[in-house]
């Protein structure tokens, strides 16, 4: 007994030396530390922006532009964080955004909206997005189609449907209440950015403080163990994809507001941007570990990068190369961390 009590302080003193030995590694290992890495990356990018573009970068309007751009893909990425943490993947997000944006801006929908209330547009987009997510989830969970394949199919189908509905035309929004609401600012912050902030905060709470979030980690970490522990893994999977679908619907609303159009070409390559943001944020692609804060940083890093490149008149292709490099570095880092904690 006396030996046991003696062992405790001994252990605590032993904790310190290895941490000192490799302070940076230990810092990178902790959750806060990983975000520190992202913050550093973001600060470096901003410095790069200031140095190369000067006042054009460090300008309130420019910062708001970055945030407004980040907001749309950010909402999708928060949803994507849930799906990936839960052990899945969704390639159809961009297509769902496009379909939702088109469906919510047809003449018919706009007509109803003008007759009743602009909120009809929002509900339509959410409904379409949610329904697409539900279909994805059901295919994967109950139809036992591999997520990659199921959502690849949805990608094709949803884009095709969007093209059919819109007849490949860009649909201009002419619902004054709608545009007025989303163009407004709250204390100088654009509504779109506020929405992103609310979604991110809500996502963080949902993932880290609720049974839903805890189940997501369990389902992604070890589905068989989760099932035997009494979690309805299939139902949960459906909910995860539906949640992401709803996020896509919301992102479609935001995109309609930003561009005042609905179009079958909206949301191009969103799947790549969202997955990239989630992964560099520190969420494990294999599931079981995920971080909303990391995702938010991931989104900001990519959006800032594009902005800096655009201000410097660098091509989209150069941006793509830089993006690719960042993803590779992030994944290499992640693997190293995973190996350290898994050894």
């Amino acid at each position: 007994m006396s030996e046991d009590t003696a062992a405790v302080p001994a252990q605590q003193t032993l904790k310190a030396p290895p941490a000192k030995e490799s302070g940076i590694k230990a810092l990178l290992g902790s959750a806060a530390g990983r975000n520190t890495g992202l913050v550093v990356a973001l600060v470096l990018l901003c410095l790069g922006g200031v140095v190369t573009a000067g006042d054009r970068f460090a300008d309130v309007d420019n910062v708001l532009t970055i945030l407004r751009l980040a907001a749309v893909i950010g909402v999708v990425s928060v949803g994507m964080t849930f799906v990936i943490t839960g052990g899945g993947i969704d390639l159809s997000v961009g297509a769902i955004v496009a379909l939702s944006s088109v469906w919510a801006t047809t003449l018919a929908t706009q007509g109803i909206a003008n007759d009743t209330h602009w909120i009809v547009i929002v509900f339509t987009a959410l409904l379409v997005g949610g329904a697409c997510g539900l279909v994805n989830g059901a295919l994967i969970a109950y139809g036992r189609v591999v997520a990659f394949i199921a959502t690849l199919a949805s990608l094709a189908a949803a884009r095709g449907l969007a093209e059919i509905i819109s007849n490949r035309k860009t649909q201009i929004v002419n619902v004054p209440g709608f545009t007025a609401f989303f163009d407004a600012s709250v204390l100088g912050v654009p509504v779109l950015v506020v929405i992103f902030a609310v979604v991110a905060a809500g996502g963080w709470v949902l993932l880290n403080r609720t049974t839903f979030g805890r189940r997501t980690f369990a389902v992604g970490g070890n589905p068989e163990a989760a099932r035997l522990a009494g979690i309805d893994v299939r139902r949960h999977t459906v909910m995860l994809y539906t949640l992401l679908g709803l996020c896509c619907g919301l992102a479609a609303v935001m995109l309609i507001a930003r561009t005042t159009t609905g179009s079958a070409t909206h949301g191009g390559l969103y799947e790549l941007d969202a997955i990239a943001a989630v992964v560099i944020g520190g969420t494990l692609l294999s599931g079981g570990r995920g971080t909303i804060a990391g995702t938010v940083f991931g989104v900001l890093i990519f959006t800032t990068l594009s902005n800096v490149f655009t201000l410097n008149n660098l091509s989209i292709s150069a941006q793509a190369v830089a993006k690719g490099a960042i993803i590779v570095v992030a994944v290499l880092l992640q693997q190293r961390l995973a190996r350290r904690s898994g050894a």
Partner: peptide, 29 residues
């Protein structure tokens, strides 16, 4: 390992995973 544990999760989360609802109010843990 394959059927029981969430290997990368904390001990307490492994223990409460089957009784989560008794620690939750309106879904908040």
């Amino acid at each position: 390992k394959s059927q029981g544990l969430l290997l990368d999760e904390a001990v307490y989360r492994n223990i409460t995973v089957s009784s989560m609802s008794s620690f939750a109010r309106f879904g908040f843990l």
